[in-house]
């Protein structure tokens, strides 16, 4: 508990991380209060088409069908965060399992699994995601699975490297010599020491998942029932000359969200990074 508080305190000393955290909280709050703020379905026509922003009727203007851009952005925040988090969780489950197995057992198992991971990393991930969603159908689940499927190799590699590094560390060998069974060694000594870089990479992965999701929606491969930022930008392309706000605002929303997550991730990295704390320890 004291440890967690210490971590939080040292995170708060990181100005960029705090800025990121503030923006991120803003986006999360927007996503939560979207239905209260905009009780009307974002797909419904609420104003005349092509209303410019800051003009009274709507905050951020309306699109070619009279939909409220601000409402669409608020609802889009829900989709982006939902997909970002759940596809990262999917990637975490696959990646950490594969990496842990490869790193702990080593040898043949490691060799085979890592060939597989390497292959997945070679394949252009975004094209694989397009292919998966296009073939299996553009539903929310399929989009999450497709993004998870292209993101996990990075986590697998990281987890494996951490496990390999820690497995040969002397404190882990000492635990083995104490007669602790393998599962206890992994859960008590390896995983707790590997978890910081996994958390950092995982948090940064939420940002890249949001970027992939928006690109898929932009290509017309988002769930057609859900309003998303990428879809909004895709829809605005043909009318870019008349209605700049239709593409500018959703883009800013993506940009800020991704930036905020990256800043928080960097802050976490600096807080949890063992190299810094090692320096502070001295010797």
């Amino acid at each position: 508990m004291r440890r967690a508080l210490n971590t939080l305190a040292s995170f708060l000393r990181h100005p960029a991380g705090v800025i990121g955290l503030v923006i991120l909280i803003g986006v999360v709050v927007l996503a939560i209060v979207a239905p209260t703020l905009f009780p009307v379905d974002p797909w419904d026509m609420v104003a005349a088409p092509f209303q410019p922003p800051f003009d009274g009727e709507t905050w951020l203007g309306s699109d070619m069908l009279g939909r409220d851009v601000a409402a669409c952005i608020a609802y889009g925040a829900r989709v982006s965060l939902l997909i970002g988090v759940s596809s990262t969780l999917a990637a975490l489950v696959i990646g950490v399992t594969v990496g842990a197995v490869a790193g702990y057992f080593g040898g043949r198992v490691d060799e085979v699994l890592m060939r597989f991971v390497e292959l997945f990393q070679t394949i252009p991930g975004f094209i694989l995601a397009i292919l998966l969603v296009a073939t299996l159908g553009p539903s929310l689940t399929n989009v999450i699975l497709a993004i998870g499927a292209v993101s996990w190799p990075q986590l697998a590699r990281l987890t494996r490297a951490e496990f390999l590094r820690l497995r040969s560390r002397e404190f882990v060998q000492a635990a083995v010599c104490q007669g602790q069974p393998p599962l206890s060694v992994v859960l008590r000594h390896i995983l707790p020491n590997a978890v910081s870089p996994i958390i950092v990479t995982g948090s940064l992965m939420i940002a890249s998942s949001i970027l992939i999701e928006s690109a898929l929606s932009f290509m017309g491969l988002g769930d057609p029932n859900l309003m998303s930022w990428g879809f909004m930008i895709g829809a605005s392309r043909s009318v870019m000359r008349q209605a700049w706000w239709m593409s500018v605002f959703p883009g800013i929303a993506i940009f800020l969200t991704v930036l905020a997550i990256n800043l928080v991730g960097e802050g976490l990295n600096d807080t949890l990074n063992p190299r810094l704390s090692r320096k502070a320890r001295g010797a």
């Binding site: 002397e170 000492a174 104490q178 008590r188």
Partner: peptide, 28 residues
């Protein structure tokens, strides 16, 4: 295993940074 125990070279690497030292001793 309990009949043969080891002390390593590097005392900085040989203790789990996240484990209380007393626990490291009592765990065995």
């Amino acid at each position: 295993r309990r009949k043969v125990q080891i002390v390593f070279q590097d005392p900085f690497a040989a203790l789990d940074p996240r484990q209380k030292v007393g626990e490291a001793i009592a765990r065995g």
